[in-house]
Write a protein that binds this DNA or RNA. Structure first.
Length: 256
DNA sequence: ATGGTGGAAAGTCCA
């Protein structure tokens, strides 16, 4: 089983790329972020015809928006962090596929250090952790994937000196990421490639992709029983080179 | 010095 996460930066603008990717890679499950459309505009019919009959989506006007596409049934679908807190931003979609709880998220960017959106990012992460830790054990099969908007360590950034302490690389953000690892999640990419400077996002500006000025902020965290089945982690960086691309590449995990 | 690019949408906001 192959599971993909991809921030498409507008589903409507990226529909041709998505269909091409589905055709070329044929993953079992796809978690999408930044749909940037309302629920009524979600292209369910086209995606069903593309081989993904099982769909869950939670859109929002202009910003955010998440979806899960699957070849297999999606049990216990969930939209948002169901803790009674803020639901104004569509940032989480979850479902159980073939016994694995798959949680796809679009973490807040944070905008600027010290800003209100930055505080929202930190508290959103606290809520996400609480949601998972309060209802799961590390021995449960879980995939936590998405645009986490955190580059966890120096090898995850194009220039550790220039990126030191900036947004997406700040200690307060890295603490939030580390908390999931301390709880029991594994970062299978870093586990298999300890020193690789491989990125999942490149800025549109100043030839970011051409100069490989990128960050690894899209992740596929696995609990131990899923990691034990994980044969491959692929960052599909070639997709970032397609004409008029998303600024994020898809990331996939392959399970035996 | 507050830019550069891209997407929402029709003036800015967000990333």
């Amino acid at each position: 089983m192959q599971v993909v996460t991809w921030n498409v930066n507008s589903l409507r603008a990226r529909m041709a790329h998505l269909l091409r990717f589905l055709d070329e890679v044929s993953p079992d499950v796809v978690c999408l972020q930044e749909l940037k459309l309302t629920d009524d505009l979600f292209p369910a019919k086209v995606l069903r015809e593309a081989g993904y009959p099982h769909l869950v989506w939670w859109g929002q006007k202009n910003y955010n928006g998440v979806a899960m596409l699957s070849k297999h049934p999606i049990d216990a679908p969930q939209k948002g962090i169901d803790d009674g807190g803020d639901r104004s931003q569509s940032r989480l979609i979850a479902g159980t596929v073939n016994g694995i709880r798959i949680i796809g998220v679009y973490a807040p960017n944070g905008t600027r250090l010290g800003s209100e959106p930055f505080a929202f990012k930190l508290s959103w992460y606290d809520r996400l952790f609480e949601m998972i830790a309060s209802r799961h054990r590390p021995s449960d099969p879980i995939i936590l994937c998405g645009d986490l908007n955190i580059a966890p360590d120096d090898p995850d950034v194009w220039d550790p000196f220039r990126c030191d302490g900036i947004l997406l690389c700040h200690p307060l953000e890295r603490e939030r990421f580390q908390r999931f690892l301390d709880w029991g999640f594994v970062d299978p990419f870093r586990e298999r490639h300890p020193f690789a400077n491989t990125f999942s996002w490149w800025d549109y500006q100043q030839m970011g992709f051409q100069r490989n000025h990128g960050l690894r902020i899209d992740h596929t965290l696995l609990t131990a029983p899923v990691d034990a089945r994980c044969s491959e982690v692929t960052i599909h960086a070639n997709v970032r080179g397609w004409t008029s691309p998303s600024d994020h590449a898809p990331v996939s995990v392959t399970l035996s």
